[in-house]
Write a protein that binds this DNA or RNA. Sequence first.
DNA 1: AGAAGCTATCAAAACGTTTTTCTTCCGTCG
DNA 2: CGACGGAAGAAAAACGTTTTGATAGCTTCT
Lengths: 331, 331
Amino acid sequence: MKKRAATIIDVAKAVGVSPSTVSHAISGKRVISTPVKAKIFDAIKELDYRPSFYAQALKNTSTRLIGVVVNECRNPSAALHLDGLAAELEKFSYKPVIGLAGLSHEMGEEMLRRFSTGLVDGVINLLPQITPDEAQELCGSIPVVTNIRESLIPVVLDYEKLTRDILNYLWSMGHRDIGYITSPTRFEGDDRTVTVLKKFFAEHEIPFDGKLVFTGDDSIESGIAGAAQFFAHRKVTAIFCGNDQMAFGVYRWAFENKVSIPADLSVIGFDNVPQSATIIPPLTTARFPYREIIEHTVKLLMAKLEKRQMPPGKMILEMPLVIRHSVADIS
Amino acid sequence: MKKRAATIIDVAKAVGVSPSTVSHAISGKRVISTPVKAKIFDAIKELDYRPSFYAQALKNTSTRLIGVVVNECRNPSAALHLDGLAAELEKFSYKPVIGLAGLSHEMGEEMLRRFSTGLVDGVINLLPQITPDEAQELCGSIPVVTNIRESLIPVVLDYEKLTRDILNYLWSMGHRDIGYITSPTRFEGDDRTVTVLKKFFAEHEIPFDGKLVFTGDDSIESGIAGAAQFFAHRKVTAIFCGNDQMAFGVYRWAFENKVSIPADLSVIGFDNVPQSATIIPPLTTARFPYREIIEHTVKLLMAKLEKRQMPPGKMILEMPLVIRHSVADIS
DNA sequence: AGAAGCTATCAAAACGTTTTTCTTCCGTCG
DNA sequence: CGACGGAAGAAAAACGTTTTGATAGCTTCT
């Protein structure tokens, strides 16, 4: 059990046949007589022969492996992406190789560079801190898809409509003092959200208060910090967050400060991670279309792998509000 | 950008030198004259040469990669393991290759078998459904550590003491009607827990009610099911769960059935995942020693890789209760 | 009966490295 | 001045496969 693993040459010798015959018997690319084939398979089992992955990869120049780079698994949204991508890639007989970059920028670059040495056939970059161009640069000649950045995928996420939906909903429930915590994962979406915010308040003839926008970083801590900042400034009746994680942070802050949700403070998240349904009170949030985004991500990667063009046309994905119990009607 | 990646031969030709010289210049294993070296590095940059990972692996027979097999990332406990293992392996210059098996048994076996083809130097099996022996069998000659099973690691988790601590705590708070939801991840720990339970009730002269033990599967859903079963049978004042996920399920059931935690029902979890601190009310739970377990897991794997024996001696790890707000004093 | 065509197998080249051994060229020393 | 030794680089072998081309031995057809 501690000795060197058996090679194809070992089994060839054991049967008294050439290595190529063994290879053909395994792959079935040429016909091998039944008795010989039987003896070969016996020997394979006997010697516990397993073809060397690396030798095969070297010969084939394809590995059916896709590198997926992500910051941390403990981010529920990342975990959802990872699980989903694994399942989706499986449909095309690809397997993910997950690179955990941690939170450092260098480590992310390092991982992408590492993948570019032929280890994988393609890369999916889930790091928000690395732009599509940087990622492609780091990976050299192998195809990369950066699915976090909306611009890269032939799909459009209508953040403006979503923001308007949320604001309308909050407004209809009587909320006038609303804080917003941004998420770096949403990028362009974030900027536009602020624009919509300003416009919305202008339309309703309410002054826009810049201190009611807090720049978050997707972590629970920044949710806490955001809520703290708002209330230090002035009382708000609702906070909406660029992702659910930060909404959980707001919950946390509220609990510690004896502010009751939703009675004293309403909260809206974005993502609809499973935890948003189990937290108390269940979080009202917008459903991020994980399934569709994931499908499109791998579809796009497959196209790049096969050097196909994607059909032009864009697809608009809905991000419906899922109404649970974290927003109160105070009108 | 779409053309074949440059090889070491290409850079050798570009400089007018032999491939071995290039290799030596890169590795520094032999001294190469400064001007030649400079030209080589220029050419490398120019051609964007990256050594083929597979060719290197084939030659070296070591890859500094460790396969980690896990069911799903969305399980927060798994995510914690994954992040921790990645950081710990990094200390030894190993990188994890994560295999997502999903929930099917065959897929788990498949992943383990796949890893055994030289893809990785060693394997860490996090699948509770596969025993250490099965895992070693599937992986052939490469070292495997199955860290979920306590018996394999030179560390003992004192589940009996933990159970007693929990029961004493609950008892001191006045609880007499206590349900227990088991976790498959704890195995032997689970059985022993039930034993301790019986003993504890005997000592306190309370009849043991078998219907107050529910077999869970670590999912949120089984937490819901467990709570539902208990209350269908009779009222309990406290439930303790083999992991935090299932405790979240109990929260969920309580919310839906207008049972208030902790006023009407106390809950204790096990794991102390981050979410247990942010859920409302914050969950009282036992801290699973992730850091130590992870350290020992890779220590053990490193020993196997270097064919060293582990020093005998076992280490007892504490699992202290972290008291938050999910248990009420009803005495 | 000889050419042609199969069938089952073998031999060799190739994939891109690393490593060991072999050259060649100098300078130095006795 | 011949031998020796060191430096710098070249050449070749090896890692474990897959794939292509070659080679026997048989059938089959004309």
